[in-house]
């Protein structure tokens, strides 16, 4: 009896404490992004508070920057091919893990998942060593090979998780009805894991577009977008970088919405 109001008070107190905490965490995550966006429209070269006035000059400068445009194009090229490659290797890898038993399978699994936790720099320098040894010229193509390797684990975990949730009876039925492995994959398995593949592909694309540690070691004369921004940053902090950043944040937002739509589509199935 006596405890009831006390409990109510402490419960209310705990809820308030939790809400405050969550609010502060959200501020920690999002205030910096707003600051970044705000300064891309500020008409002063220095990034100091308070804001001095509104301008679109930094965006105009971007539109005239041909190096930047080349870098963006290079990034699209690298991310598209790296995503395609990592799906071509990753989907069969997930299927292998899902249904075959063979000696060395646990090593196989560990190796494939390793790049998720392994710092990108190790993937980068080990492939750099190899390419130099066999006399490969560094280029955007070597970057593509590096990205595909580094992102393999992402694709495999996503597709494998989906495969595990599929009822085995589906494929068995296809085999019983006389479908070959190719037919049963195209007609039965693929439609069921389609959204997982799209989701994994989208994620690989974004991660590859954004990748630095592997790119840093494997690229030749051409720069990808993050490498270009990185080299600009060496020269100092400018609102021009904030303008690129704002555009990237906007593009990320579009991709997040796309990803949510893909996931929602999965739930409706």
């Amino acid at each position: 009896m006596k405890n009831a109001p006390m409990n109510l008070v402490s419960r209310y107190g705990a809820d308030t404490a939790f809400m405050t905490f969550v609010g502060m965490l959200m501020a920690f995550l999002y205030v910096p992004i707003w600051v970044l966006v705000a300064f891309s429209f500020n008409d002063s070269r220095s990034l100091t508070w308070p804001l001095s006035g509104f301008t679109l000059d930094w965006y105009r400068k971007l539109a005239e920057n041909t190096d930047l445009q080349a870098a963006i194009w290079n990034s699209f090229y690298v991310a598209s091919f790296a995503t395609a490659l990592t799906l071509i290797v990753g989907v069969p890898a997930a299927m292998t893990l899902h249904r075959f038993a063979f000696p060395g399978k646990s090593i196989f699994r560990r190796l494939i998942l390793l790049p998720i936790t392994l710092p990108g720099i190790v993937t980068g320098i080990s492939m750099l060593n190899m390419f130099k040894l066999v006399g490969f010229q560094l280029s955007l193509e070597t970057v593509i090979l590096g990205h595909a390797t580094a992102l393999l684990g992402v694709v495999v975990t996503q597709v494998y998780a989906r495969l595990q949730r599929l009822p085995k009876s589906l494929e068995e039925a296809a085999f019983d009805l006389g479908a070959g492995p190719w037919r049963s994959f195209i007609d039965v398995t693929l439609p069921n894991i389609k959204t997982a593949i799209i989701g994994a592909g989208l994620l690989s694309f974004v991660l590859s577009f954004d990748e630095i540690p592997v790119t840093f070691f494997l690229t030749g004369r051409d720069n990808t977008l993050p490498m270009y921004i990185y080299s600009t940053m060496r020269r100092g902090v400018t609102p021009e970088i904030n303008a690129v950043a704002t555009l990237i944040v906007a593009a990320s937002l579009v991709l997040i919405v796309a990803a949510v739509i893909v996931t929602r589509g999965r739930k409706n199935q």
Partner: peptide
Amino acid sequence: WVSYLLRAYIWKTILGTE
């Protein structure tokens, strides 16, 4: 989903002397 490089850069602009 937002560039990792930019998330590091943000803090340089926030915490810097200027």
